[in-house]
Amino acid sequence: MDFAGAYSADNLRFLMEGLKMTLYIAFWAILLSFVIGCIIGVIRYMQVPVVSQILAVIVEVLRNLPLLLIIFFVQFAIPQINVFGLQFKFTVPAGAIIALTLFEAAMISEVVRAGLKSIPKGQVEAARSSGLGSIQALWHIVLPQGLRRMVPPLVSQFISLLKDTSLAVIVALAELMHNAQIIIGQSPNYSIPILLLVAMIYFVVNYTLSLISRRLETRTA
């Protein structure tokens, strides 16, 4: 084991560049998947005719496919599809964001739907009987309470998403694990030091998210 060589200034800088890419991908995937997942979850909770059924099929398909397969499909299959002369080609970071967003939005939509359904129907009926419409009851009664209950599972999904960015190494995304592999390739003596450092980085980032989750739970309790 060569800790001194593994932790050279150049190697550490290279790892930080990979971490920067990991956080960039995770940030946009979390933001987009949360917005899309909330929309899908609300639509399915409201049981909008036809649309809910179509979204249910899409969600079930995405949830039961390996994320790696979705990454491959977005990166390699979609660019081969020609629709009226149009082809969709993505950069590696954009493809990773799209794949992670699709997968996580399906997961988050189920968290949102379950959170909304956990609110007692009696509260909704009371709101409706007081003159509120279905949208108003959702906005003022169901959503505020449901969101508080969704915090722990949502943060768990976000942590999973951040860790799942490492799967994009298969399409040569220059994220943390990709850069770690390149450094390890310089010398087998770098393996343990670099992997220990990468493990610590992932732990610190994800543990920070867990602490934020606990703080949010305390505030909304």
Results as ranks from 00 to 15, higher is better:
5 G>K: 09
5 G>R: 08
7 Y>S: 10
9 A>N: 09
12 L>C: 12
13 R>Q: 10
20 K>P: 01
27 F>N: 04
32 L>H: 03
39 I>K: 02
41 G>F: 14
44 R>A: 07
45 Y>K: 12
46 M>C: 08
50 V>G: 05
58 I>H: 00
59 V>R: 04
60 E>V: 15
61 V>Q: 03
61 V>Y: 00
62 L>T: 09
65 L>T: 15
69 L>W: 05
70 I>G: 06
70 I>V: 14
72 F>P: 05
75 Q>N: 15
77 A>G: 05
82 N>G: 11
82 N>H: 14
87 Q>N: 14
93 P>L: 05
94 A>T: 10
95 G>Q: 06
99 A>R: 04
100 L>A: 07
101 T>C: 01
102 L>G: 07
107 M>P: 02
108 I>C: 00
108 I>G: 02
111 V>L: 03
128 R>C: 15
128 R>Y: 14
129 S>R: 03
142 V>R: 07
145 Q>R: 08
145 Q>W: 02
145 Q>K: 13
156 S>C: 09
161 L>K: 10
163 K>V: 10
170 I>Q: 13
172 A>I: 14
175 E>M: 11
180 A>K: 04
182 I>R: 05
185 G>N: 09
187 S>Y: 08
189 N>Y: 11
192 I>A: 11
198 V>K: 09
199 A>C: 12
205 V>R: 00
207 Y>G: 05
210 S>G: 10
213 S>L: 12
215 R>F: 15
217 E>H: 05
221 A>S: 15
